[in-house]
C-alpha cells in the first residue's frame, strides 16, 4: 500500500464523521451509562445517543462544513441536556465559528478548530485539564493534532495521534478526583472511575480518525 498524504478534510468526510459518531455512541450507549452510574446520574449514554441521533437527522444537505458543524452544535444543545449538552454544543459551536462557508479544511484549519473547541469547553465549564472531565481527552488531542500536523501536514497521521492522545487522556481520568460536575460532590469516592465525558470525547475523536483513514484507503 502506498502512503499518500491527506492534506484536506472534505465535507463528505465531516458528514461521515457525524454519522460514525452517532453509530459509535449508540453502540456504546450502555457502556457510557454504566461508567456514569457510580459517579454521575446514569444518563450519559442515553443523552449522547439521543443528541447525536438528532444531530444526524437535522444535518443540513450541501458542502458547507461550518453550517454542518453549527447544526450539530444546535442539535446537541437542545437534545442532550444536563452538562454534556452545553459542553459538546459549545465545542462544535465555537470550533465551527471560523469555518462558515468552507467546503474543505486544511491541517491548519483543523488544528484551529480543535483549539477553538477546547477553549470553548474550558470557558463554558469554567474548567481545565486534570479535573476529571472531557477536557482530559480533548485538550491533549488538540495538542497532539497540532504537533503532528506541524511535522508534515498529514491530517490522517495527525488525527490518529489526536485519537491516541484522547485515549490516553481518558484513561488518565481513572485515578483523578473529580473537581467539576456532579462527580465532584463525591470527593475521594470519585477516584478509581473512568470519566464518562472523557470516554465519549475519545469515541468521537476516534470516529473522526477512523472515517478519514477509511476515506484515504
Amino acid at each position: 500500500m502506498t502512503e499518500t498524504l491527506t492534506t484536506a478534510v472534505t465535507a463528505p468526510m465531516v458528514r461521515a464523521w457525524i454519522e460514525r459518531s452517532a453509530k459509535v455512541l449508540a453502540d456504546n450507549r450502555a457502556y457510557l451509562t454504566e461508567l456514569d452510574a457510580p459517579i454521575g446520574d446514569s444518563d450519559h449514554g442515553n443523552n449522547m445517543d439521543r443528541g447525536f441521533k438528532a444531530a444526524l437527522e437535522k444535518l443540513p444537505e450541501g458542502d458547507d462544513i461550518g453550517a454542518m458543524l453549527k447544526s450539530v452544535a444546535m442539535s446537541l444543545i437542545s437534545k442532550v441536556g444536563g452538562a454534556a449538552g452545553p459542553l459538546y454544543g459549545t465545542m462544535f459551536l465555537d470550533g465551527a465559528k471560523p469555518l462558515a462557508g468552507k467546503t474543505s479544511l486544511s491541517a491548519d484549519e483543523l488544528a484551529q478548530f480543535f483549539d477553538d473547541a477546547v477553549a470553548g469547553v474550558m470557558k463554558r465549564g469554567r474548567s481545565d485539564v486534570e479535573m476529571k472531565t472531557m477536557l482530559d481527552a480533548l485538550a491533549p488531542a488538540a495538542r497532539a493534532f497540532r504537533e503532528e500536523a506541524a511535522k508534515g501536514s498529514d491530517i490522517r497521521a495527525a488525527l490518529k495521534a489526536a485519537a491516541e492522545a484522547a485515549r490516553q487522556g481518558m484513561e488518565a481520568t481513572i485515578p483523578m478526583q473529580a473537581q467539576r460536575g456532579r462527580a465532584s460532590y463525591l470527593g475521594e469516592r470519585s477516584i478509581g472511575h473512568q470519566d464518562p465525558g472523557a470516554t465519549s470525547s475519545h469515541l468521537i475523536l476516534q470516529a473522526f480518525s477512523d472515517v478519514v483513514e477509511e476515506a484515504a484507503q
Partner: peptide
C-alpha cells in the same frame, strides 16, 4: 447551582 443548570441558563 448545578453544573448543567448553570451552563444551560448561560447559553
Amino acid at each position: 447551582n448545578y453544573t448543567g443548570d448553570v451552563m444551560n441558563f448561560q447559553m
